[in-house]
Design a protein around this nucleic acid. Structure first.
Lengths: 332, 332
DNA sequence: ATGAAAGCGCTAACAT
DNA sequence: ATGTTAGCGCTTTCAT
């Protein structure tokens, strides 16, 4: 492996000069610079990251903490985050955290060993110890898609968006509306809260049995959630699912029983993942601004890292109701 | 940040001893070991990865090269790879490569700077320079989902699997069968080759116009591909799509024209991604053994890295035809 | 069983 | 404008 010393020897310069050239510092003779650049090109020299990271006390990499079981929305989001981070010159290291509580602190340990420049949370970690440690070592953090304490975050108004989704159903004439949500993430409860508030706004009863909390936010979970509702009897004409994947599973369960969407039951999702526009029927949903969210997340973290102090505390991005084919007016 | 020296001072031992304890080496007094372990626990000490990597000349991390636009199959695959790699004690660093050719060599440069222990290719890079460099620096490589030169690889027999898929259609009585494939990856051409061979096997003409090669393997691409076929007239009763996502898009385009699947046209996909079982109709497809593929990939790389020399060259895993609802016998 | 010392590849402060 | 030097945190001979 060719090192800075090799380049130094071969060019007759000292390592410092090579370092200056590599890092684009001034105070180096243009001719020599050219010559060194050429040598680097020829030898294929690339600075050793570990060594740099060691002396600089930073790694030029940011950690992205994400659920092991990340859904398609999260997948799309981290894709744009990664791309934007790269544009700022950061590497991205993923920390997949599993559902068991232990995994959270393991993740923290891995974080510690890396001398990260910053971290982005896509996974909602509840343990306050986690954040207090990050704060202690003064590590910049941005949360995307939810909020927690005083940590800068970027998200959509989940509760209000859920209200809009349910109001869409109500405006269509639906009165008996159920909801399938998931567990373990605040956006689930926030969306459930929005669901109830919309019901209240329409003077509809707040009936807790109208919400099912499945263990995950997957299509499979949505299917089981809907089956459970069906088991209890078919006392609903519309369903709000906390994610598109939940909605997809719910529709599947409905159709399996010969219940047509939207003819018999309307279904609305949340997220607007790519596949939703290809479903049969096309899914009505709330669109989260994935691209903007990812861009802003990367940008904000970069600012935090660069010590740029005009820092946003909380950025609430606009969402949009996308009306497609899975919802329809209640026939009267 | 607490370092090995801090632990040494606080415990009255030397850094060497601490190192021995941390790395579970022998020759250290059990009592002192306990005592040091306790101190480590209390202080939250975690060895600095860069420093370790520096002296050991390795990083305990493996690089996974994956397309920027990875599809759901690849997403599921890398998830299990990551999990298995972690079990072997490796970190995973993703290298997303974009479609432009330049990106490939940039990726190589990033690879160089990392002192990786090994790399897993999920993205098919064509540039021989890429592989020859990896060979030069003696970096273990495993390819998953395709093969290239002499590099150890793990995959399914794409051509044979495609034949089976098309034969399923033929056995159902279909004679006019089209295919939607994508560009840029060998599995696309392999599957197209299988398509043609199945046709030949049934004494059906090899008609190149029956295959469309879309730029990507997404649902959107599948939709446009099918629209193109439809524009040319509706001279087919069945379609083989090179991926499930392509199939999903194709079905969408068909239904948009009032053509029912499978009543009017049968569609079969490839991969068996999670969502396929929730589609309307449920997608008939070829199942790739994602879990086994990921496990074997991680295991083989680990063996390569550990210098275990009984190395497999090429592992061809079994696939399975999953018959669901999107294909049906041609009514006569 | 334990410690001292060297060195991994790099950057930055300091000298010249 | 360039070189010398120290040191980042760790592991590993080599002594003892």
């Amino acid at each position: 492996m060719v090192s800075i010393k090799d380049i130094a020897k071969q060019s007759g310069m000292s390592p410092s000069t090579i370092s200056r050239v590599v890092n684009g510092k001034k105070y180096v003779n243009p001719e020599k610079r050219e010559q060194i650049l050429k040598l680097i090109e020829e030898t294929g020299y690339v600075p050793n990251k570990a060594a740099r990271s060691m002396v600089l006390q930073r790694s030029f990499t940011v950690g992205v903490v994400i659920p092991d079981t990340f859904n398609m929305f999260q997948r799309q989001l981290f894709s744009v985050i990664e791309r934007n981070l790269e544009a700022f010159g950061y590497h991205t290291l993923f920390f997949f955290v599993k559902f068991e509580g232990k995994s959270e602190m393991e993740c923290l340990n891995r974080l510690k060993a890396e001398k990260l420049d910053g971290v982005i949370m896509l996974q909602e970690i509840k343990n306050p110890e986690f954040y207090s440690y990050l704060e202690k070592i003064n590590l910049p953090v941005i949360i995307a898609t939810f909020n927690y304490g005083e940590i800068p975050c970027i998200h959509v108004d989940d509760e209000q968006a859920a209200m809009d989704a349910v109001n869409h159903l109500i405006n269509l004439g639906h009165q008996k509306i159920n909801m399938i949500s998931g567990q373990g993430f605040s956006f689930g409860s926030l969306r459930a809260e929005g669901f109830f508030r919309a019901l209240e706004g329409a003077a509809l009863p707040r009936d807790e049995t109208r919400v099912i909390y499945t263990p995950y936010y997957t299509a499979e979970a949505g299917m089981y959630g809907m089956r459970e509702f069906l088991l209890r009897g078919r006392d609903f004409s519309a369903v709000f699912a906390a994610t598109d994947e939940l909605a997809i599973g719910a529709i599947r369960a409905l159709e399996d029983e010969g219940i047509r969407v939207p003819a018999d039951v309307s279904v609305i999702g949340f997220d607007d993942i790519e596949i939703s526009d290809f479903m049969m029927p096309r899914l009505t949903t709330i669109r989260q601004p994935i691209k903007e969210m990812g861009e802003q997340t990367a940008l904000s973290l970069h600012r935090l890292i660069s010590g740029n102090n005009n820092i946003m505390e909380e950025l609430v991005l606009p969402y949009r109701l996308i009306i497609r084919e899975s919802t329809r007016a209640l026939p009267r």
